[in-house]
Design a protein around this nucleic acid. Sequence first.
DNA 1: AACTCTGACAACCAGAAGGTTGTAAAACTT
DNA 2: AAGTTTTACAACCTTCTGGTTGTCAGAGTT
Lengths: 134, 134
Amino acid sequence: MTVVEDEMSLVFAALADPTRRAILERLAHGEAAVNQLAEPFAMSQQAISKHLKVLERARLISRTRSAQSRPCVLRTEHLDAAAGWIARHRQIWADRHDRLGDHLAALRDARRDGEETARAVPLDARSDGEGTAR
Amino acid sequence: MTVVEDEMSLVFAALADPTRRAILERLAHGEAAVNQLAEPFAMSQQAISKHLKVLERARLISRTRSAQSRPCVLRTEHLDAAAGWIARHRQIWADRHDRLGDHLAALRDARRDGEETARAVPLDARSDGEGTAR
DNA sequence: AACTCTGACAACCAGAAGGTTGTAAAACTT
DNA sequence: AAGTTTTACAACCTTCTGGTTGTCAGAGTT
């Protein structure tokens, strides 16, 4: 499957590998050739080439030509898009929590009236104890 | 092996699937049970449970207990961490580009970059052969 | 007690990911 | 022209991923 994977998935998937993140960190400081990028890793040049292809497919880098080397350059548009997605949903959540706070206050008031209005959230169900790590 | 995958990778990997992102979107609007989460998808409940386990392992959600249902709640700390990683490196890149374009601008914003360690990129160190990420 | 509803665990499967080695091509050096 | 440097492509292997079906356990219902 994965016929035509959406961009966002490609970006996040590209970021989901430590090697690739390290490559991006390196590229944030300036363009570099495959050789240079491969050097810090205990890994073949071919493996790095594959990682670069993943990054290229996610449009996180682009490649130019200079003599026999193909330097890599970071692109930030899609990084921004990814950060944007996170920020957006994080924000919705934050807003909702604000409203929840209001609701709790309102609920307290309503309780004093003996009213039993819609209580969607158990109110104390936040006792998550964080669960098993595995 | 993947003995103990680093948190950042877990988070990004969890975000790299459209189904899981949709689940998070849904959860941003309020907690929900597995049933409710599964409904919009042409997919078995078991598949959704697996996705939830991935999200849980990445600590993007946690689960509570209420009768026979196990509602899911969004957690934002790790979302923030991921967004932070992106923002940080996007920023380094932006700073460096300023330098490339304009030395004076570089002087100016090198002063206000409280982001992480002020790293003095030598401005033409584009071909230095080092730069390990770890 | 028997039934239903909700969710989880297990076994299985196809395909993608991430690595390897071997080899080849393009551009530069001698 | 021959050799070196740099990178890519292909085949292969192993593990992970994302889905399936079948089954089972726990909490509420009748």
